[in-house]
Write a protein that binds this DNA or RNA. Sequence first.
DNA 1: AAGGTTCATCGATGCGCTTCGACGCAACGC
DNA 2: GCGTTGCGTCGAAGCGCATCGATGAACCTT
Lengths: 333, 333
Amino acid sequence: MVSIGDVAKAAQVSASTVSYVLSGKRPISKETADRVLRAIRDLNYQPNAGARALAGGRTNVLALVVPLRADQNVPVVMEFAAAVVTRARLADYDVLLLTQAEGVAGVRRVAASALADAFIVMDLQADDPRLPILRALDQPAVLIGLPERPVGLSAVDLHFSAAAALAVDHLADLGHRSLALVGAPAAVYERRTGYAQRTLAGFEKAAARRDVAAVATACEPSFDGLRRAVADVLDRQPGTTGWLVHNESVLPSVVAVLQEFGREVPADASVVAVCPDDMADTHAVAFTNIGLPAGDVGEIAVEMVLRHLEGATAVETRLLSPVLTERESTRRI
Amino acid sequence: MVSIGDVAKAAQVSASTVSYVLSGKRPISKETADRVLRAIRDLNYQPNAGARALAGGRTNVLALVVPLRADQNVPVVMEFAAAVVTRARLADYDVLLLTQAEGVAGVRRVAASALADAFIVMDLQADDPRLPILRALDQPAVLIGLPERPVGLSAVDLHFSAAAALAVDHLADLGHRSLALVGAPAAVYERRTGYAQRTLAGFEKAAARRDVAAVATACEPSFDGLRRAVADVLDRQPGTTGWLVHNESVLPSVVAVLQEFGREVPADASVVAVCPDDMADTHAVAFTNIGLPAGDVGEIAVEMVLRHLEGATAVETRLLSPVLTERESTRRI
DNA sequence: AAGGTTCATCGATGCGCTTCGACGCAACGC
DNA sequence: GCGTTGCGTCGAAGCGCATCGATGAACCTT
C-alpha cells in the first residue's frame, strides 16, 4: 500500500504539498506539481478512500436505492442504474447499490455511517416511509420518479401525464374514439406509485378533453395477465381501437394477444407504447412509442445531486417532455 | 454526527470498551455491555465507515463488476446483482457497483484506494485483460461465469455444457433427429464469452454422442435477428425440429417467428429454452426450460468471497447442475 | 501474607489523509 | 534601508476508530 507519505518522499516535498497538488486548494508551483505528479504515476498512488473520507468529510460515493421487485420492469431499472453509474464516474463518484428491501433502515444506516455523500432513490410511492427520513438527512437526496408530495426534495422523471395526453392526442387525431390504457400490475397501483398514477390521470383527463371514450386496466406481467387485461377492456368497452400500453413486460405479447381477440395491429387496433425507444422497434410490429428516457433521467439525477453537493439548496423538480415516435403500430382509422 | 466517544461518555466507559463491545474481540462484562448497547441505541450510533476502514483495514464493501452492454441480457444481470446485494447484506457487507465500461482501470482504482474488500466480476471473456490484475490483487476476487482459464481465482456458474447436453438428450429422447442451437449475439461469441462457448461445445458434443444432426447459429436480440437466425438454421438444415434457445431477449418472439416459417410449437417444433425459470412460463406457450439460477449463483459468489475474506486460500470452481423443467413447448415427435 | 492468575477495562498510538496556521523568501514601495 | 505583501511550502493537529500493552481488582495458591 503506497501512501501519501511515500509520494511525498519520492517527490521530496511534504505530504501536505502532495495533498494540495491533488486537490488544487492552494497554489503549488508548476515544477513542484510536476515532480509530485510524476511520483504519483511512478508509484501508482491512489489515495486511501477511508482516510480521505475521514479527514475530508466526503466519501465520493453516491448511494443508489433501486427497486428489485418482481413486478418492476427490470431492464428499465438497469438502464437507470447504468446511467447513474456512468454519469457519477465522470464526476469521480462511485455508486453504492442499495435495495428497496433494506428500506428505511438501509437509508438510515448508510447515512449515519457516512458511507455515502448523497442518495438517489427510485420508485417512490405515495407516503413512502423513506420520504421524511430523506428530508431529515444531512446528505442531499434526489428522487427518480415523482411521489405525490416531494416537498423539500429534488426529483426528476418523465412527465407521465403529458405522455399519456400525447398518446391520447395522437390516437384521437388518427380518428380513434375508444381508447384503453393497459397499465402497470395492480400492486403498483395499490402502492400508489407515482408514474402509474400520473399516467392514469393524464390519460383520463386527455380523453375527457378530446371527448373520446376511455377505460383503464391494470395488467400483470405475463402473457396470461395481458390476455385478462385485454379481455377486461373489450368486455367493458367492446369498440376499443386505440391502445396505450404502459407496461414493458407485456409489450412482446401485445400483437399476439390482440390477434387472439381478432384484432390485427395496426389494421384493427392502434397501439402506443410507453417504453424505452430501443425496446420499441425490436418486435414483430415496431411500436409507435413514447420514449422512456431512462438514461437521461439517470444522468439528470446525478447532476442534481452534484449541484446539491456543491452547495445548491434550492430543490427542483424536472419533468421531461415526452416524445412520441411514430412507427408501425398506429394507423388512421 | 454521534461518535464512539459520545457513546462512551453516555455509557461511562472508555471508547475502547465501546469498540470491544461492538467487535466482541475482548470479553466485556454483561452489565457494561448492556449499558453500552443502550447508549448506542439511545444515541442511534453508527460507526463511521471511513474511520472504521482506516483503522481496521476493512471496508465491509464488496465491489460488483457488472456488464451493462446492450447485447447482454439485462434482467438476468439484474437478478445476479439483486442476489449479490441481498446476500452481502446478510453478512453486513455493502455493494459498490462498477461497470464493465471502467474496465481494468476501474478495478485497479477501487483496489488501490481500498474502497472494497473484495471483487465479484461477471461476464469474463477469454483472455479478459482483468484476469491477471484480479489475480495480482491483495483483495480476493470471485468470478461469475467461467473464463477459459480461471487459474488462481474462484468461480461459479451454471454448468452450461451439461445444460446443453441435457437439452439435447431431452430432445433426442423425444425422437428429434435434427437440432438447432439459437445462441447469443455474434458479438458475444467474438468476445469468446465463457457461457456461450461452453453451451455451444456441450451442444455439439452431445449431438455427436446421440448421433443427431445439429447446427448452431448466433442470434441478435431482436425480432428480426431471430427471424434471420431461424432462416439461417432452416436453410442449412431444413428438417430441424428440435430447438435450443439460449438467448433470453428473443424468447418472447420464438413462437411467432417459428409460426412465420410454418412451424407450430410444439406440434412441428419443440423448443427448450435456457433462461430463468420465472421467464419460462409467462409466454403464450410455456417453455420447457433449463433454469438459469441467477439468484443461487449470486449467493454462492458472495459466500465464496466471504470464505476468502475469512482467510480461505483454496480456490474453488463451482458449476451448478442444470435442471430441466418440462412445460408445453416440447413434445414427442 | 506474598505472589500468581484471570478478567474487565482504560489510555495511548496510529491508520492516511485534509486543513489550518505559520514561515521563508522574493519582489515591491517609500 | 526597512517594512510590506503575496506566493509556495511545511509541520502539526485532528478526523473516528481498532488495537495493543498496561493497570487494577478480584480471586487463588502455597
